[in-house]
Simulated assay, not measured.
Amino acid sequence: MSIRRLVRGTIEWDRLEVVFREMAERYDRSELRVEFLDADNWLSTPCVVNDQWFVKIVTGQNSLVHALFTGARNLGAFTSGTEGFFEHFADPMEMCEHELEATKRMREIGLHVPAPIESFEVDGMGVLVMEYLPEFETLDDIDEERVEHYAPEVFEALSAMHDHQLAHGDFRGENVLIYDEIVYFIDATNVREDGIAEARSYDLACALAALEPLVGARDAVQAAAEHYTPEELLAAREFLDFVNMRPDHDFDAVSVKGEIEKLADSEDADGE
């Protein structure tokens, strides 16, 4: 058994059957076709139902793992000179409700996200139901030329989120989907309202970290600069070392910092 499966936990089949019986009743279906996804997700058991719905099943163990992750991330935020801004969920249902509401808010401001459908509780588990996007690609899946094409759109969408006082909190290449030539965001996490400014800087640092291995530091920073000021990029720079400690980001932090500093110096020189 992999460490991921051990930590995430395996849901007993009889409990899964309870979930799918509830779905069949809710959506008036005599039977359901279920495909479990071997996604790198520690916080839920994801599956696709009837090629129509993307479903996350969240257990108490998933909630416990989220609490551990939240504590570690807040500790890392302290190393960047700020208070921790990640917030834990009380239980599996709260995890599902938050993602549903965060997705609704992103959709309301015009961002492309899978349509949020509902969340409900069954046998102590939270169940989140979203639109399923077939045949999508993640930002990590596509070639350099296409990443360069989509990078400005990625930063434009992230900037729009930030302009509306929202933060993603878990920006990674696998959480950016390309579907029908459109950029979609998924898997927003929970950020304290009083920490939103720091969370936005952290988001920007994560986006630069995700794009640097794909297009290089210069192109990543230039794409971000189309939608963020030098001051905002300098604020993000303070989180790059923290982001670089995360196992799901592997990038050249020194090069990204250098490109941000060159951009800021150039702007200062132009302003004199």
Rank of each mutant, 00 (worst) to 15 (best):
S44A: 15
I11P: 08
M1L: 13
Y228I: 06
D123M: 09
I196T: 12
I109C: 08
D123R: 12
K262P: 06
V58G: 10
A72I: 14
F251G: 01
E137A: 04
L177N: 02
I182A: 01
T82W: 07
V65P: 01
H227W: 12
F185R: 00
M23E: 09
D180M: 09
T79N: 10
E137Q: 10
M95I: 07
R26V: 01
D40T: 09
M130D: 04
S159N: 12
E212P: 00
M125C: 07
I109P: 07
E261H: 00
A72M: 14
G173R: 03
E181D: 14
V191D: 04
F85I: 04
G173I: 02
V34H: 13
R8N: 13
V55T: 07
S30W: 11
E121R: 15
R237W: 01
D123A: 15
R237I: 00
E198N: 14
G110W: 01
E156K: 14
S159A: 11
G110D: 00
A253L: 04
W53Y: 15
S159K: 15
V221C: 11
V154N: 01
A151L: 07
I3F: 15
K104P: 00
A209F: 06
P247M: 05
R105N: 10
D252K: 09
R8C: 07
E137C: 02
A160P: 00
E144I: 04
A160H: 10
A225V: 03
W42H: 05
R146A: 14
I3K: 15
A72W: 13
C47R: 12
N62I: 05
T79H: 10
Y228P: 03
A90Y: 03
P152Y: 15
F36L: 13
R73E: 09
A102I: 03
V7F: 15
L208I: 11
A209W: 03
A160C: 13
E259T: 07
P46D: 15
E193I: 05
I186E: 02
D140T: 11
K257F: 05
A264Y: 12
V113G: 05
T10Q: 14
T82M: 11
F136H: 12
V18W: 15
A269H: 08
R26P: 03
A223K: 03
S119P: 02
E259R: 13
M106T: 00
R172Q: 13
G84P: 08
D141T: 03
I186Q: 04
M161T: 00
V34C: 09
A102P: 02
A225M: 05
R21L: 06
M130A: 03
A72N: 09
A67D: 11
T79Q: 13
R200G: 04
L204C: 04
L214P: 02
V127A: 07
E101C: 05
R192S: 14
L158T: 00
N62W: 07
T138S: 12
A236H: 10
D40W: 11
H112Q: 04
V191Q: 05
A151C: 08
G126H: 08
N190R: 15
R107M: 05
V221Q: 14
E87L: 08
A151V: 04
A205I: 08
P213G: 04
L234D: 06
I11E: 09
A236L: 06
M23T: 00
H249P: 01
A236F: 08
E135S: 12
F85L: 07
